[in-house]
């Protein structure tokens, strides 16, 4: 289980980071979401992985650490709100600059425009 868990975290984080480095806002938002999934799983594993453990002492033979679960819950809520905000913000950026490039415009177009002006 540990190996599967670690591989999932690794794949999520790697794809998240890769997508975040893209030039369009949509992949960046998806990348941020995947990164936060990976981080949430990682945070959960900081309480050690156990099956059949309950977070209440005495209810089962092994008990699991309740704190990482509380931390993950908080991180999920915050991550969800932030994702909603960044989606709205990237839509506004698309509307404001008529382009979904993260810089609001494509650098090549900028250069082409500059060259045209220079030619005049």
């Amino acid at each position: 289980m540990e190996l599967a868990f670690a591989v999932v975290i690794g794949v999520l984080t790697a794809s998240g980071v890769y997508l975040m480095l893209r030039a369009r806002t949509f992949p960046v938002v998806v990348g941020l979401t995947m990164l936060s999934y990976g981080v949430n799983l990682f945070l959960f594993s900081s309480g050690r992985l156990a099956t059949g453990g309950q977070p209440i002492i005495g209810s089962a033979e092994t008990y699991s650490d309740p704190l990482p679960q509380a931390l993950v819950l908080t991180a999920i809520v915050i991550g969800f709100a932030m994702t909603a905000f960044v989606v709205v913000l990237s839509l506004r950026s698309l509307a404001d600059s008529d382009d979904d490039h993260v810089n609001g415009r494509i650098p090549e177009q900028d250069n082409a425009r500059q060259e045209q002006e220079d030619a005049k």
Partner: peptide, 19 residues
């Protein structure tokens, strides 16, 4: 809008590293 977007995305990545 664009500086704001950069600020938000950077800080979200920062939050992930913090966690």
């Amino acid at each position: 809008t664009v500086p704001g977007l950069h600020y938000v995305v950077l800080n979200l990545a920062g939050s992930a590293v913090f966690l």
